[in-house]
């Protein structure tokens, strides 16, 4: 699949980013250039190479099951764009 085939409208929807038609057009062009450049990774043979997810690999980093204080209620809601009755208000969720 050619890198320029990116469906910006669809991907922007997945990312929940509203784009104007102008933005969409610029985005397509710019991303095509970047994706074209990224294609160079296909030159490499990565057969048998393990992926690196962490630069410093460790395992079993866990915390004990201990309760710590939560935020004071006012602090929890202090940054809420809309709130009522201790809840974060959002437009009606329909599904």
């Amino acid at each position: 699949m050619a890198a320029t085939d990116i469906d910006v409208k669809y991907v922007a929807h997945l990312a929940r980013i509203g784009l104007t038609p102008d933005e969409e057009a610029t985005m397509s062009a710019r991303l095509a250039g970047i994706l074209g450049y990224i294609e160079k990774l296909k030159e490499l043979d990565v057969t048998g190479v393990e992926p690196t997810a962490h630069a410093v690999p460790m395992v079993n980093v866990l915390r004990p099951d201990v309760v710590c204080p939560s935020l004071p209620h006012e602090a929890a809601l202090a940054n809420a764009p809309a709130q009522a009755n201790g809840l974060f208000l959002v437009p009606k969720i329909v599904e």
């Binding site: 910006v8 991907v11 922007a12 929807h13 990312a15 929940r16 980013i17 509203g18 784009l19 104007t20 933005e23 610029t26 985005m27 710019r30 991303l31 970047i34 994706l35 959002v90 437009p91």
Partner: peptide
Amino acid sequence: LYTRTRGAGFGAEVKRRIIL
């Protein structure tokens, strides 16, 4: 709400990288 908030709140470079 999401698409408007994120459409208006993020600048072009951030949008580009999120979409990529």
